[in-house]
Simulated assay, not measured.
Amino acid sequence: MRIESVQGDITTQGVDAIVNAANSSLLGGGGVDGAIHAAAGPELLDACRELRRTTLPDGLPVGDAVATPGFRLPARWVLHTVGPNRHRGQTDPVLLASCFARPLELAVELGASSVAFPAVSAGVYGWALDDVARIAVGTVHAWQSSTDPEGGVELVRFVLFSSAALDAFRTELG
Rank of each mutant, 00 (worst) to 15 (best):
Q7K: 09
F158D: 00
R157D: 01
R76K: 14
D148Y: 02
L44W: 07
V66Q: 04
D64L: 14
A116V: 08
V66D: 06
R157Y: 06
A168W: 02
I18Q: 04
E109V: 12
E109S: 15
T139C: 12
G174W: 04
A168C: 03
D131S: 09
A142K: 15
V124F: 08
D92P: 04
H141Y: 14
F117E: 03
G123D: 00
R102A: 15
I36R: 08
G28R: 10
S162D: 05
I36F: 03
D131E: 05
D58E: 14
H87P: 03
G59F: 04
A21G: 04
G34S: 05
R53L: 14
L104Y: 05
S24Q: 12
T91I: 13
A47E: 09
S25F: 10
G152Y: 00
Q7S: 02
D9V: 07
A21K: 00
P42I: 14
A133G: 08
F158T: 10
S25Y: 06
A65F: 01
A165M: 09
S98Q: 14
M1I: 10
D9N: 14
V137H: 07
R88I: 06
E4A: 13
F158V: 03
T139V: 11
P103L: 08
S163T: 11
D130N: 07
A119H: 10
V15N: 02
N23L: 13
A107P: 00
S145I: 12
V120Y: 02
P149K: 00
G14P: 14
T11N: 02
L26S: 09
V156A: 05
H141L: 15
S146Y: 11
A164D: 02
P93F: 10
G111T: 01
A142W: 13
T171K: 15
E154I: 08
G126A: 04
L44C: 14
L73S: 00
V62G: 05
V6S: 03
